[in-house]
Design a protein around this nucleic acid. Structure first.
Lengths: 232, 232
DNA sequence: CGTGGTTTTGAGCCCGTTCAAGTATCGTGG
DNA sequence: CCACGATACTTGAACGGGCTCAAAACCACG
């Protein structure tokens, strides 16, 4: 975890996509003074479930996972958050979810008290928070359907497609993606085991629907067929 | 579906618990004019996934289920909503989730355009919406863990406990509850089949942890043991 | 008191898990 | 640049929890 005093919010590359896009240009200095930029390396924990909830975070770069686990080792990844997205907005006084860096990550940290003041000063900021919360809620509902009713193959296909979509909406990619998560993390996200994820992926590769390359790279050869197997 | 012109918001029993509690007393007439009260009988559909999203709903009385289903019949209940809670706030232009009445239900319907104006007029209303959305998000995350990593017994135990909690926080009940949902609906909520839910319930009854009575009534005899089996 | 839907119970099966072994990959230091 | 160890991934065989299919029991309602 490394600190950085005040790189200017006006120069922030993903400001428009993040909650900060709701703050008017002329007030960006207020924003700059409210937040602290922190960096984490892969595998570092950003917030830990159960600890007192003090801050809200917005991702500048990198990917994080939100997860919940039981003392017996069972772990479920609730979701991933990408640049421009936020986490730890809970109204409760302790964090409900552990958040860990999947890659090198830069986040902006806003103490809850400060966020509250910002929100009062900039109503559009709250509108943006609500919009994004509702978006996360819709994504959670998709995930609930996936976990409750889809087969292993459908789960993996859905996962690959949704990740592909997230990439292509940023920059037109030729269906070749570098997943920042391991097989175990995919399994913990889909409610499966590592072995099953691996088996399904090699199965899809044998059917010539994807190719699995080195360093977590996957190429989607037949998006239509994948869609068909995703059960949507 | 029956209409009712304008029963007064000032007389509304659950106003304080709902989003309407964020609107000042003196402005309740604006609220009364914005909404329309509608009633539904059990099994009636309130909104249907895929149809154009025009309105937002707040529950005055009764219970509804939010669900998603596939053309092959697989159904997953995303969650339930109780008096004071809302649904169909999605920013998308079509409803993502079908909402159906589990009991006789009274809802207040707010067209999206009107809600937008209300929110601009009353910033605290948006604060309330955000708070409640975050609460639903936290509940969804619990459900994601449950669906992904819990056993059938743990699922049913968790369900009974959370429903019991919802009841006791309203009125001190002697652990005897009337579930408004059928076995199939419990199954669709927990990602199980009707048969499994039935088997687990009779199992719990055989262990003297609960008793299952007539017309969907369940009494919790040993909450501590149930907690133990819920895996939390 | 019949009728239709819901719930329970039973028997057998299957998908995904568990356990175990083997292989590939990555990072590190020589 | 390569050898090495640690971690991640793959593959196989057997198991088992929850599903499927089927039938009986129960309840609600006219």
């Amino acid at each position: 975890m490394r600190h950085e005093p005040g790189a200017d919010c006006a120069a922030c590359a993903i400001r428009a996509k993040s909650i900060c896009g709701a703050v008017p240009h002329r007030d960006l200095d207020i924003l700059s003074r409210s937040r602290r930029q922190i960096r984490f390396d892969r595998r570092q924990t950003i917030v830990r479930a159960g600890e007192p909830a003090t801050s809200f975070f917005s991702i500048v770069s990198g990917v994080v996972k939100l997860c919940r686990s039981l003392s017996d080792g069972r772990t479920q990844i609730i979701g991933f958050r990408f640049p421009g997205e936020f986490f730890a907005i809970s109204a409760a006084d302790t964090y409900a979810t552990t958040v860990e860096a999947l890659t090198f990550v830069e986040v902006c940290q806003f103490p809850h008290s400060l966020l509250k003041r910002l929100v009062q000063a900039f109503p559009q900021l709250q509108t943006r928070l609500l919009e994004m919360s509702n978006h996360y809620l819709a994504a959670s509902e998709d995930q609930i359907f996936l976990l409750g009713r889809k087969t292993a193959k459908e789960k993996v296909a859905s996962f690959l497609l949704s990740y592909n979509e997230k990439l292509t909406q940023e920059s037109a990619g030729g269906h070749c993606m570098h997943l920042p998560m391991t097989r175990t993390e995919i399994a913990d996200f889909l409610g499966l085991t590592t072995e099953t994820v691996s088996r399904v992926l090699t199965g899809l590769a044998r059917e010539k629907i994807i190719t699995v390359g080195l360093s977590h790279s996957v190429r989607l050869l037949n998006v239509d067929l994948l869609q068909h197997f995703s059960g949507n």
